[in-house]
Design a binder for these strands. Structure first.
Lengths: 358, 358
DNA sequence: CCAGCGGATGATAGCGCTACCATACGCGAT
DNA sequence: ATCGCGTATGGTAGCGCTATCATCCGCTGG
């Protein structure tokens, strides 16, 4: 006969400890952590309290083993600015690590391939992952969302401009963020302000432009159509837009670009024209990607808290997949996060103006 | 009494099937897959064959559960070009997914913080991860490698210029790659060729420059010191270098930049000077990051197979951690991968030259 | 010839959790 | 009262693997 052996240092809290503390069986605890329904409200609360008190975290490996299934979520991307993609990757990776789920990253190309191809890909995706994270511009691609809906994969849109109907969404208030940045520029003393729009197919673009216009109106600063240029979030489009803006008869003293890539382009063009940033021209961006601190001067921009947003998106997705497994229907959520104005070196009061700080 | 219940569809190959086929106990199989030493060579081979024949893949969840430890590897980065970082992230994520290990990504800043701070961070890192992946420029940062050595964490350098002594390394032959690209440009008919160097602190820079010079020499094309500009892999440095090169009395007809970021900068400067790429100036990059296809015209560049390289690096790291656990010493490996010349639109024969294709 | 030893292999008990079934407990219908 | 039925909870057998110990075997030295 052999005496039993403890294999673990028992450092971690396990499900039976929680069960014991809550005075229930470990199955009940399992049901609670998995969101099963057949648990009385009072019991559930007792268990939840025990979980909190012991700071219990289910062991993902054990879960995966017992349930023969790991939580796998896919992050789709398309046509990304490298800066934005790495930001997103970093954020979701973090969030995935925290929840112990696995992240599968895939490029999604060919919303053009016709509905059939999209549907085939979506079917494959449904096999590979339990849920899908959709950053822009994918969250607003009709063929994709339709195909995904077709195969019943839960989705969460991340950083969309507006909540997509029928899909959970994690985002900031783009309109207000643009409003804040514009107001900041006005406070610095700017009156002649240029704006570069984003991709017209993304709702965030319109939101940001609206925020800009309203801030102008709110401050009584005249709006000049000639100082608005079209763009599509790409560096290249920013180049064109900046040339257009800086060739105007009366040049704006500040340019607010709808993302960092285009702001970068503005700086390039300005420097080529021997304009000093920020002395002769202030430049503001949006997103606070890695690039914002790579360029010189470093970009004043709006920061989206991508990491917390990703975490929330993942949590939402996990919740949705769970509900789906139990055949409960989930109604979409729309979570708003706070943006942050990051002041760096690319913005200053206009030449000869005394800054009018409030 | 209750009759036993099969819980799994038994779709996957498990360790006992392998054991049965090899005619050994499942423990022996486990020993083989974990690289333990006390297995006779003949037995090991029998087991390996069974593994191959059944295409057995150990279940990472079960492993993690039984061994009370998941394979966690850290990817450190610093001061990255966004393009390069996302490329790396995508590659390692892929590799990690394949081996079922977890990826922890951390920014490493402050090799400047003095040795003590670095050592403290390294200690923390040793707790968080079993091994560390070191992309450039970190793999050549003395304080870091020393600190890591101090806490005995296995490391693998990825995409370094030269093998770091005492550390495994996965890379391409930078010298040969640069040689190939230069030869390609010469074949197109270029004789006046500019070069932008990379960060002098990274061995890849010297390698690439050497490849450039030797290709010139091999083809009997004269080397002109005036057409070489310093850079540090950043877009900004590329801008400066390009201005310098394009302001020369006799302009080069082609510029080979040591990475894509700087090549991008060359294109920007060229366009600002009303030079058409590739008609008036050919531009070549290195790395084939996302950016290469984002700019216009798309970049002719050298592709490092980052994804396979990352996989190999992870495999090497996992092997090293295993050996470390068993107190075996591992000798560093140096794995070379094949690069690939990617021809896109930024290079063409020089004006008025009849291309001399071999 | 046998004790003693070390290397190779096997048997078994977990690892922490969930799937599956069993059980307990109302509560309205008969 | 009895039965049936549905809801809340418990018991237990795995999930696929590794740690630990037991066993077996061939060899050396006394």
């Amino acid at each position: 006969m052999r005496k039993p052996v403890r294999r673990r240092a028992a450092a971690l809290v396990t499900i039976d400890q929680v069960a014991h503390r809550a005075g229930v069986s470990l199955m009940t605890v399992s049901r609670v952590t998995n969101g099963h329904e057949c648990v009385r409200e009072r019991t559930r609360e007792r268990v939840m309290r025990a979980i909190r008190e012991l700071n219990y975290k289910p062991n993902p490996a054990a879960r995966a083993l017992a349930a023969a299934r790991a939580d796998r979520i896919a992050l789709l991307y398309a046509n990304p600015s490298a800066g934005y993609l790495s930001e997103l990757l970093l954020g979701t990776l973090d969030g995935a690590g925290l929840t112990g789920c696995q992240l599968v990253v895939q490029k999604w190309e060919g919303a053009d391939g016709g509905g059939e191809r999209a549907r085939a890909r979506a079917r494959q995706l449904a096999r590979d992952a339990d849920g899908v994270l959709l950053p822009p511009p994918l969250c607003e691609s009709q063929p994709l969302t339709a195909a995904l809906e077709g195969v019943q994969v839960p989705c969460v849109a991340i950083a969309a401009g507006l909540a997509t109907p029928g899909m959970s969404c994690v985002r900031i208030d783009n309109r207000r963020a643009a409003h804040d940045m514009t107001t900041h520029l006005i406070r610095l003393g700017h009156r002649a302000m240029g704006f570069i729009k984003g991709d017209p197919n993304q709702s965030a673009s319109a939101q940001r432009f609206e925020g800009f216009r309203h801030a102008l109106a709110d401050a009584g600063v005249p709006f000049n159509e000639a100082w608005v240029a079209a763009g599509d979030f790409s560096y290249r489009s920013g180049l064109r837009a900046a040339e257009h803006l800086l060739a105007a008869r009366i040049r704006p003293t500040a340019i607010f670009a709808s993302n960092d890539d285009m702001a970068h382009a503005v700086i390039s063009v300005a420097q080529r024209r021997r304009l000093s940033v920020p002395r002769d021209l202030s430049v503001a961006g949006f997103d606070d990607t890695l690039m914002a601190t790579t360029v010189f001067p470093e970009l004043t921009t709006v920061r989206q808290p991508i990491a917390p947003m990703s975490q929330e998106a993942i949590a939402l997705l996990l919740e949705a997949t769970r509900r789906k497994r139990l055949n409960l229907d989930a109604e979409p959520e729309d979570r708003l996060f706070e943006h942050e104005l990051i002041e760096r070196d690319s913005c200053a009061p206009p030449r000869g103006a005394s800054s009018a700080t409030s």
